[in-house]
């Protein structure tokens, strides 16, 4: 069973995502901070990571993604973000700035998220 790691500091978002993904038959682990995420990546060995952009700091998600890539981690990363709406910035794939594989706007419809996740994981 492929495993997804959800990283978000909002417990309700974590619960929602957990429910959506476990209903699809994925194993789900969760972390609520940068430190927890780094530990969970080692311990849980996820097949996919879903990262929220804003945790304690507005750019935590990006920082985490960069840290993971710097460590040589190749696991696909989906950034879950709502900051585009606030800042007006559009984020896209940029291996230097944000070494992630996909951006998903928050809040996300369950079916859309599942489709994105499926793209990276074959059960």
């Amino acid at each position: 069973m492929p495993k997804v790691l959800i990283v978000d500091d909002d417990p309700d978002i974590v619960d929602s995502l957990k429910l959506i993904l476990s209903a699809e038959g994925y194993a789900v682990a969760a972390a609520t901070s940068r430190e927890e995420c780094m530990r969970a990546v080692e311990k849980e060995q996820p097949d996919l990571i879903i990262l929220d952009v804003m945790m304690e700091q507005p750019d935590d998600g990006f920082v985490v993604a960069q840290d993971l890539r710097r460590k040589g981690l190749k696991t696909p990363i989906i950034i879950l973000s709502s900051i585009g709406h606030v800042t007006g910035y559009k984020y896209g794939k940029d291996s230097d700035m944000a070494p992630v594989d996909e951006f998903v706007a928050k809040p996300v419809a369950p079916a859309d998220l599942v489709a994105k996740v499926k793209k990276f994981l074959r059960k």
């Binding site: 429910l19 959506i20 928050k106």
Partner: peptide, 23 residues
């Protein structure tokens, strides 16, 4: 803006699950 959007995102997330009857 971020602090006000967080609860909205949480509630909307739950509502969408309910809408899709995911549970």
């Amino acid at each position: 803006a971020h602090e006000l959007k967080s609860p909205l995102a949480a509630v909307e997330g739950y509502l969408r699950i309910i809408q899709a009857k995911s549970a």
